[in-house]
Design a protein around this nucleic acid. Structure first.
Lengths: 194, 194
DNA sequence: TGAATTAACATACAGGCTGTATGTATGCAA
DNA sequence: TTGCATACATACAGCCTGTATGTTAATTCA
C-alpha cells in the first residue's frame, strides 16, 4: 500500500475530514442529531471513531461544522440569485426570500438548520453563525429599502431577525400550503411600505 | 405507616405523577432535555425510575406532558387577559401579543417551548399541541379582524402560523432589545391594516 | 370478609453510546 | 536516519435508557 502512503498529511487530513462531514450531514439529515450515533457516522464514512475525535472535539462540534457548511450553502445560493435583483427594494427583498425558499427545498437541510440546530447549539450560537452568513444580506436589503424610502424606518437588526423567523417558518410549511404561506408572507412585506 | 397506606390508588397516582411533572419541568427548564437524565428527575421527585416508566412510556413522553402543561399555562394567561380586550381588532391582536410576552417571561418556559420542544417532539407534533391550545385564539382574532374589515383578507391559518413564529422569535430576543422587537412587531401588525 | 386480582410502584439487568486514554504507523524536519 | 509530531486505530470506563422481574398495597368479587 505504498501508493496510498505517498499522500501528504494535509491531503489525508482534508480527505477524512470531508468523509466525516458528508457522512454526518447525510445521517443528521435523515435521522436527526439525537438519533444518529457516532458509530453510525464513522461506519458511513469508512473511518473509525478515533478519527472523528481527532478532528472534532465531540459530536456537537461535528454537528456545528455541518450546520456551518449548510448555512454557507444557503447564503451562497442567495448571493448567486442576487446578481439578477430587481431595482425596487421591496421586490428585491421578496426575490431574496424566494432564493431562500429554493435553497431550503431540501428536507434534510430544513431538519438540520431549522429543527435540530437551535436545540443542539443553542439560539445564541446559532445567531452567531447566522450573523456571519445570512443575516448580513438581509440587514443590507432592509437598510437599502429604508434609505430609499420604500419601507418604514424601524430597528434594522430586530426586523431582520423577525424576517428570518418568518422565512424559517414559511420554509417549514407543508408543500401543499406553500402557496398560501407565500401569499401571507408577501402581504406582510408589502405592509412595511412607507 | 398505616396512615400513609390509607390512600386511594387514584390519590397515589395523581401525587407521584405531579411530583414527576414538577421535577421534570424544573430540570428541563434549567438544563434542557438532552442534559437532563431520568435518574436526576426521579431523584428530584423523590421516587424511582420504576415510577417514571410506570406513568410515562419514555423520557420523551414525560417531556411531552411537560410541554403540554406549559402550553396550557400560556394559553390560559392569554385567555385571562382576553377579558379586557380593546374593541379595535388590530389593537386586540397587539394586546394578545403582549399577554403572550408576559407569559413568556420565564426563561425555563422559553427553553422548553421554543428551543427544545421543536427538536424533541418534531414540528408536526408540536403544531398539533399548538392547535389544541394557543393557535385557535390567534386564528379567531385574525378572522375577526378580517371580518371587521380591519386587516387584509389572507389565508388565516398560514397567517396565524407566521404570527406565531414572529411572537416566538420576539419572545426569544434579549431583554435589552425587547423594546425594538416590539416596535418592529407592532409595525408588521399595523402593516396588515386594510 | 377473605381470596384473587390488579394497580403502583421498586429493583435488577442488558445493551448502547459517549468521551478518553493508550497504542501504532506514517509524514516531516533536522 | 533519527527523533518528533501528526493522524489515526483500539481499548476501556462510565453513564444512561428501556425492560424484565419482584413486591406491596388497594380493589373486587364470591
Amino acid at each position: 500500500m505504498q501508493v496510498e502512503s505517498r499522500r501528504t498529511q494535509a491531503e489525508r487530513r482534508a480527505e477524512t475530514r470531508g468523509l466525516l462531514l458528508t457522512a454526518a450531514r447525510k445521517l443528521f439529515a435523515e435521522r436527526g442529531f439525537a438519533e444518529t450515533g457516532t458509530p453510525d457516522i464513522v461506519a458511513a464514512a469508512g473511518v473509525t471513531r478515533g478519527a472523528l475525535y481527532h478532528h472534532f472535539a465531540d459530536k456537537t462540534a461535528l454537528f456545528a461544522a455541518v450546520v456551518e457548511a449548510e448555512h454557507a450553502a444557503v447564503a451562497q445560493g442567495i448571493e448567486a440569485a442576487g446578481d439578477a435583483m430587481p431595482t425596487d427594494p421591496v421586490a428585491a427583498l421578496l426575490a431574496g426570500g424566494n432564493a431562500f425558499f429554493a435553497a431550503m427545498r431540501d428536507e434534510g437541510r430544513r431538519r438540520i438548520l431549522l429543527v435540530d440546530a437551535p436545540a443542539v447549539l443553542g439560539r445564541a450560537a446559532l445567531d452567531e453563525i447566522d450573523a456571519r452568513h445570512g443575516l448580513e444580506t438581509l440587514v443590507c436589503g432592509l437598510r437599502d429599502a429604508m434609505d430609499a424610502g420604500a419601507i418604514r424606518r424601524l430597528p434594522v437588526e430586530p426586523l431582520a431577525q423577525l424576517f428570518g423567523a418568518l422565512f424559517d417558518r414559511a420554509a417549514l410549511a407543508p408543500v401543499e400550503r406553500q402557496a398560501e404561506f407565500q401569499q401571507a408572507m408577501a402581504a406582510m412585506v408589502e405592509g412595511l411600505r412607507a
